[in-house]
């Protein structure tokens, strides 16, 4: 019985976690500033800020080139790498967005 209750509790915790995840979806969008830099803006679909969210820029092989955080204004600017790259907006499990460098245009 105790085990069943624990299972139920676990299921509830999962349910709540899932609900929270769906309640706000992360959003992130990047554009090429045309001067050798790229700006990414982030946030959540409920309008809340992404300030402090971990940002990474990786090269084609997945190696981290640049690492930083979303500013107080929920944006992140970096120098555009020479080759293939990918931007990772990492707000925790289930809240990760990856944007390919090729999709980032002016």
């Amino acid at each position: 019985m105790k085990r069943t209750m624990m299972m139920l509790g676990f299921a509830c915790a999962l349910l709540f976690a899932a609900t929270a995840a769906f309640a706000h979806t992360p959003v992130c969008s990047c554009f090429d500033n045309g001067d050798g830099t790229v700006t990414c803006e982030g946030g959540f679909s409920d309008g809340s800020s992404a300030s402090g969210v971990r940002m990474m820029v990786k090269d084609g092989s997945g190696k981290v080139l640049i690492e930083g955080k979303m500013s107080g204004n929920s944006d992140f600017e970096f120098k555009k790498p020479a080759g293939d790259y990918m931007v990772v907006f990492d707000a925790g499990e289930g809240h990760v967005i990856e944007i390919k460098g090729a999709d980032i245009v002016q």
Binding site: T25, V27, S29, E41, G43, F44, S45, D46, G47
Partner: peptide, 12 residues
């Protein structure tokens, strides 16, 4: 007259 548009799903 007003029209409201959105970019990227981030409300404001």
């Amino acid at each position: 007259t007003k029209v409201v548009a959105n970019v990227g799903g981030m409300p404001g």
